[in-house]
Design a protein around this nucleic acid. Structure first.
Length: 965
RNA sequence: GCUGAAGUGGUGGAAUUGGUAGACACGCUGGACUUAAAAUCCAGUGGGCAGAAAUGCCCGUACGGGUUCAAGUCCCGUCUUCAGUACCA
């Protein structure tokens, strides 16, 4: 072989890796049984590199998808060269909406589509699908595929169901700040009742003694326990998306419409499974300090959790037994309250509304219910509300405070009620102005005639009795103390974070391991898991509006046989109906990183021995769009599992990096309005045109349109006319956009691999720019790294007829210098995740060594190891040609020796008043004074000084000389 | 509005602790090879001015200030772009 035949080389090594299981991670047990002379791996430290696993969509991969995988692969390979036992697995997040939507359209079982999307095949419409696995394999990743997980495999979701049961069987003890078994709570209840129990639970749980508890019926006890469980069934107001036929979590809604599809979402009360993530709010915040994640991502989690410190204040209602509790961050402004505002959805509203106001209030409630979430958000300016006719009593002055309702108060935050202080809050201010409610001023020396004053730092309280003259901080503390003394309030920390709704009315998700006995949920025992998804004849909700599982005929639980049986057998004595909802997308991805440690274990999620060894993920790479969903839920589940002793760590991931998006370069042709005539780029200004996306494959690197291809591309362009440039070419207009099929700007990694090779693709993706930045893809630039690989190949093939050649001669000093500066830079770059600069470093090294005509094995061997994490195929091939029979994968990373970089002299830049004028070669060991005299003696110095005497000469040895004057 | 990130040639980007701005590539221009093209190789390439040339000078890292012998880098203010978030009491 003389030329660089990348296709052959890559196929050869991909096969070699697969046959030799080169990247199979060693298990800790392999170390203990080291009698067979497995000494080499015994002391290897572990390193866990993980990618966010993909949802296998039918569209396949585009060049943006593998970016993070390439980066993590470079890192994983680097760690292997450094002597680590690397766990670098891959799998599929294979439950999800697209397969289900496709199933609804075609009737094909989502399991089949999913399988085809992963393993390849033909879809219902006859289109050939390459399959994720093949596409990934072509890029030469060092994944340990023996550990693959798929969230939709029953063998995997068994553990998702098991974790759900664990959550159901747990409650959160806020005094110990950890989750405990529900059995311990029962013991406490029967001995002393619940008055001393500090737990994260529903609002308004009734208080009972031990004796009362024991007297409760079984059903009643279960009902109470449900209010404490970490996953619970409750009638909650949820985001219902009629179009998708399912509820959505807050993070699945963007700007008031569904993230997927962009359909409207309405509020609806439904009985749903929820996760008591709020119990972990504080620990989720605190944990952020212990992990190395991007600051921006930590900030989004912090904002999402939304901790705010303030007070809960209880107002009595005049002529009523009822009270209103509000949360406020400004208890210091309590004397500025001139009205109360309640969210219209609050049940209390109907109870306190006076007869006279009833009609107005009901009309308002109806009007707000009709408004979609989106309208409400889009229209913040319009102020609406209604007076209930009721009055609250000021805790200190006893004054009557009118109670209003208004949709600017959100039912879901705090208590759904606010004490309105118009002088200190702009929203209250606007509301008061609109309805002519008085705005008392309680701030010293502040004008509030135009707007509210909300600057805490400069607040001095006035007109507030015992708070007069105090600052925000002092007044807050005093107000809380006074409220506590009156038993009408206390300091409180409030979180924006809501409990997460966990039910989805979908087919293609994990079934709940739950059946219903007298309407109360019962868990299926662990040994009968997995509870496998039933077959249905259609993937739509039932006519009665039940989820798709309502169509299953065999979906009942026989408690005696412990198996799924036909619905006909339901007798509600031994055979019961099963839950019809399925779990949301994030269920399967919350703990998957632990399953890779021990993927075939049938007894446990992962064995203790393996969890002890692998701990958690050392490096996790994925997109920032998961900041408040997957990455928050996963942290929650891991903390819970840690509490219950099922995991040994309380964070899933030590270090996380978000890779930036790779954008596409869309191409547009401009059509004259109302005609089938297209205008080339330079003549656009003379016509009135509209841009139309054109497939980027019809455009070359110089933006020339393939006119023939274009007219054949779409039927309606068949007879199109073209106004071209003078030379007869037609130029398109380019624009950077998100890469997507609908924009016709998708570039497939398969095509790049065929044309240039996987090593070129890998290098180029790294070369494009910093990993974390968004950057446009331009296939034009790829020739640069491709010709670099050709040059690299040539460096090793300088023999007769371009044959392989390496010599045993000692390398030149220059070559050693080139090698060692490359080692230093590449090692630093990988450790700093600055992969783009490594690629330039390689280019410089190869250019220099080529110029030096270096053939020395002492240089060529370490060089190929340096390059192998980036371009593993060519590296393996050259490594073999250098005479090695083992894979390069575990070859030791070259050791940097500073001695080769020691210089005796330096080309000093000589600047005058900060401007560099010329350079001067001077010995590095020259003293400051000698440097100064040498520079002053230089003929050019006099010329730049133009007769002036320098005021000062700055000499920084080894760096620079600056003459001031 | 708030939070975060970022603004450097025609393009992607480099300059890790303040010390020769534009590394490395793409593109472009010219040349070699070729009947021609592709591929390959060589040279040039931030802008402006002067010069036949060697070369020299001025400007230049979004904008306006500041600190410093020295600023892309540090500080203050402004603008723009991108991302996230949004009535959170």
């Amino acid at each position: 072989m003389s030329k660089y035949h990348f296709n052959e080389i890559e196929a050869k090594w991909q096969q070699y890796w697969s046959e030799n299981q080169t990247f199979k991670a060693q298990n800790p047990s392999a170390f203990s049984s080291s009698e067979e002379g497995d000494d080499e791996t015994v002391d290897k430290p572990k390193f866990y590199v993980l990618d966010m696993f993909p949802y296998p969509s039918g569209a396949g991969l585009h060049v943006g998808h593998p970016l993070g995988y390439i980066a993590s692969d470079v890192y994983a390979r680097f760690k292997r060269h450094q002597g680590f036992n690397v766990l670098h697995p891959m799998g599929y997040d294979s439950f999800g909406l697209p397969a289900e939507q496709y199933a609804i359209q075609t009737g094909q079982h989502p399991a089949e589509t999913t399988k085809v999307n992963i393993e390849g095949g033909t879809d219902k419409s006859g289109t050939k699908i390459e399959g994720y696995r093949k596409q990934l394999d072509r890029i030469g990743f060092s994944f340990d595929w023996s550990r693959e997980v798929r969230t939709s495999n029953p063998g995997y979701y068994k553990w998702t169901q098991w974790i759900f049961i664990q959550l159901f069987e747990s409650w959160y003890d806020t005094s110990e700040d950890k989750a405990r078994p529900i059995s311990e709570l029962k013991t406490i209840f029967s001995s002393e009742g619940n008055s001393n129990v500090e737990a994260a639970c529903d609002e308004g749980v009734e208080i009972f003694s031990g004796a009362t508890w024991n007297a409760f019926s079984e059903a009643k006890q279960q009902q109470i326990l449900l209010q404490y469980r970490l996953t619970y069934l409750a009638e909650t107001e949820v985001n219902w998306c009629p179009e998708l036929g399912t509820v959505l979590a807050n993070d699945e809604i963007v700007n008031g419409v569904s993230e997927r599809g962009g359909f409207p979402v309405i509020r609806k009360k439904m009985k749903q499974w929820s996760m008591r993530i709020t119990a972990y709010a504080q620990r989720l915040l605190d944990g952020l300090d212990t992990i190395d994640w991007p600051q921006s991502l930590k900030d989004s989690q912090t904002n999402w959790i939304g901790r705010s410190k303030g007070a809960e204040v209880t107002f009595k209602i005049k002529d009523s037994e009822k009270t209103i509790s509000v949360f406020t961050t400004r208890p210091d402004t309590i004397y500025g309250v001139s009205f109360m505002t309640l969210a219209p959805e609050l049940d209390l509203v109907k109870e306190i509304t006076t007869q006279a106001q009833k009609a107005a209030v009901e009309a308002y409630i109806d009007a707000t219910a009709k408004r979609s979430e989106r309208d409400r958000m889009a229209d913040v300016k319009t102020i609406t509300g209604a007076f209930t006719g009721a009055y609250a009593e000021h805790p200190f002055t006893g004054e009557a405070i009118p109670i209003w309702i208004g949709d600017y108060v959100l039912a879901g935050y705090g208590t759904g009620a606010v004490m309105s202080v118009p002088c200190g809050d702009q929203r209250d201010y606007d509301f008061a102005k609109h309805f002519n409610i008085p705005i008392p001023n309680i701030f010293e020396g502040v004008d509030i005639s135009e707007e509210a004053f909300s600057d805490k730092a400069t607040t001095v309280i006035a007109n507030s009795d015992f708070l007069n003259g105090l600052s925000y901080k002092e007044a807050t503390q005093k107000a809380i103390e006074a409220l506590e003394a009156k038993n009408q309030g206390e300091g409180k920390i409030n979180y924006r974070l809501r409990d997460a709704v966990f039910s989805r009315q979908r087919y293609w998700g994990e079934p709940f391991p739950v059946y219903y006995k007298n309407g109360m949920p019962q868990m299926i025992a662990k040994e009968h898991l997995p509870l496998v998804l039933p077959e249905v004849e259609k993937y739509l909700p039932t006519e009665e509006g039940e989820p798709p599982l309502g169509r299953a005929d065999v979906w009942a639980w026989d408690t005696e046989k412990a198996e799924i049986v036909s619905n006909d057998l339901i007798n509600n004595e031994t055979v019961f109906p099963l839950e019809l909802n399925t779990m949301p997308g994030w269920a399967g991805s919350s703990c998957y990183m632990f399953r890779y440690m021990d993927p075939d274990n049938n007894e446990e999620l992962a064995s203790e021995e393996k969890m002890k060894y692998w701990e958690n993920v050392d490096l996790y790479i994925g997109g920032s769009e998961h900041a408040t969903s997957h990455l928050l839920y996963s942290r929650f589940w891991v903390k819970f599992m840690y509490d219950r002793g099922n995991l040994l760590v309380d964070e899933p991931v030590k270090k996380l990096i978000n890779q930036g998006m790779i954008l596409g370069e869309s191409a547009f042709v401009h059509r004259i309005e109302g005609e089938n005539k297209f205008v080339t780029e330079s003549l656009l200004h003379t016509y009135k045109t509209q841009p139309i996306h054109v497939d980027v494959s019809l455009v070359d690197h110089h933006n020339n349109l393939d006119i023939n291809g274009f007219t054949n591309w779409r039927e309606d362009f068949k007879n199109a006319e073209f106004i071209t440039e003078n030379d007869g070419t037609f130029k398109v207009v380019r624009e950077v956009e998100k890469m997507s099929k609908s924009k016709y700007n998708v570039v497939s990694p398969d095509d790049i691999c065929s044309q240039y090779g996987a090593d070129t693709l890998r290098l180029y993706e790294m070369f494009l720019g910093p990993l974390e930045q968004a950057k446009p893809w331009s296939t034009a630039g790829i020739t640069g790294v491709h010709s670099f690989l050709k040059k690299l190949w040539k460096l090793y093939h300088s023999g007769e007829g371009e044959s392989f050649r390496s010599t045993e001669e000692a390398p030149s000093k220059d070559s050693l210098k080139t090698l060692h500066k490359t080692i230093k830079k590449v090692q630093e770059d990988i450790e700093n995740f600055s992969f783009n600069t490594s690629v330039s470093t390689f280019m410089i090294a190869v250019n220099e060594l080529t110029a030096q005509q270096c053939t020395s094995r002492e240089i060529l061997e370490p060089l190929v190891i340096l390059i192998s994490p980036y371009a593993p195929h060519i590296a393996e091939e050259l490594w073999q040609q250098l005479g090695h029979s083992e894979s390069i994968a575990t070859a030791s990373f070259p050791k940097f020796e500073a001695s080769h970089l020691v210089e005796s002299s330096k080309e000093y830049p000589i600047s005058f008043n900060g401007k560099m004028r010329f350079t001067m070669e001077l010995p590095l060991d020259m003293s400051k004074d000698d440097i100064e005299s040498a520079v002053m003696a230089h003929e050019k110095t006099a010329r730049y000084l133009e007769g002036r005497t320098p005021k000062k000469v700055i000499v920084v040895p080894g760096k620079i000389v600056n003459i001031v004057g």
